[in-house]
Design a binder for these strands. Structure first.
Lengths: 158, 158
DNA sequence: TAGCATTATCTGCCTCGGCAGCAATTGCCT
DNA sequence: AGGCAATTGCTGCCGAGGCAGATAATGCTA
């Protein structure tokens, strides 16, 4: 472990990872949300659809991987179910669990909107070389791993 | 400019910068908010105080640099003013403008809570070498710059 | 000076996520 | 089997932020 990166004397908010992450996320999210405007599925809803396509199968699982509230997800799934993009099936193995899966229409809608997201991601990274992109991803994952570990330690204590 | 980083065929949400930024920000924010729990100033409010100490002087300026809603900021300033941490002064040069500045108590409170934030930032970056930290900051800033440029182009058109 | 677009702030309304409590179900332990 | 903690999903409530319209003040143009 190296010495601390920040100290009280020299701290400036513009040099804070937290502040930069906030800005980067807000800008990226706004760009994505703007791209999805006018379509009948919001950006957040589409993210859920993608995660389902990638294998997520229950409500709780979606909440954990998306760092999303269970109450909020229940309501979000209600909407997706109403529009026939998703279906809920009570698990027979464990009747507390609700299995969620894409319908055919849901799968179609997911693919249909995919280009919107891809386009925005590439636009945001237009000035990044392959090497820079790889570095960026690696560092983000490392950062996340550290915090998730700390978070897990915090919640298992209490 | 290099070739596109993402394409429709190979896309996976776990490899999306947007998804990673969302997670990184959420985890960092939760850690910071948890650190400020119990103190009479929320994490968000403290951020405003810091920006004021660093020279921000009007409500509008705070909104722009923090990527924050003007309505939300008005209410947040109301609370800070009530507690005597901040004071509003109608500008004499332009009477539409409200100059905001820290009171002595506000400056004291800002410094008092600084260690909480520093500590969390350093904890999150504990495994980062100096070089990795510098790289991470550089790439985040580059990413932000690209998106801000695009955002500005989008809003000046309409 | 009169008219009009623009800017800065504030207010009300709406949506969405966080949180706490609830009901149903399961698994563990005796 | 019986009791009890833990887990899953759902519901009501609350607070915070986004958005649109209102207000006041300024600057530009004729």
């Amino acid at each position: 472990m190296s010495a601390a990166h920040y100290d009280i004397r020299s701290f400036s908010s513009g040099q804070s990872v937290g502040y930069l992450l906030k800005l980067a996320h807000a800008l990226m999210h706004d760009a994505a949300a703007a791209a999805f405007e006018g379509h009948d599925v919001s950006f957040m809803q589409w993210l859920i659809l993608v995660k389902l396509r990638e294998g997520a199968s229950t409500a709780g699982e979606l909440c954990r991987i998306m760092w999303y509230d269970t109450g909020a997800l229940t309501r979000l799934l209600d909407q997706l179910e109403e529009r026939g993009l998703v279906e809920r099936l009570r698990s027979v193995a464990d009747r507390r669990v609700v299995n969620v899966r894409l319908t055919a229409a849901g799968r179609r809608k997911t693919s249909e909107l995919m280009p919107l997201a891809i386009e925005r991601l590439n636009a945001a990274l237009a000035d990044f070389s392959k090497a820079e992109f790889a570095q960026f991803m690696r560092l983000l994952k490392k950062f996340i791993a550290t915090l998730q570990q700390a978070e897990q330690a915090r919640t298992t204590v209490s």
